[in-house]
Amino acid sequence: MRLTKLMKFEAFIVVARISWEQKKAIIYLNPEFAKKNGIREGDVVSVIKGERKANFRVKFLDTAPENGGMIPNSIYTSYLLDFNTFKNFRAYIEIVEEEESKPEEIVDIIMNKK
């Protein structure tokens, strides 16, 4: 059991467009920030914003903000956010032993099926 799995981290997260193909729920973490908090590439983290959360697979990216990460515009960010936090927000992240969120799961939540 990794000790970091028991911890929550506060992170500054930027929402941005990416030009490469985007298929899964991915959070691009700043490598330094991730290492400092014991998060490895390939981990799945929950991003928790108020009462809502979504799971993302971790990748490292040096252009992600120093104190957190970047998530591409997607159904996941839309679900987590409102117009006041549309481009960047603070949230908690924690390592989870689950899969990344899928669009259908978010749709089910939005449609109140879950």
Partner: peptide
């Protein structure tokens, strides 16, 4: 809009 607008909007699309 279901994927691009915030939850408070998208949930009302139903």
């Amino acid at each position: 809009p279901l994927s691009s607008l915030p939850y408070e909007v998208s949930r009302k699309l139903l």
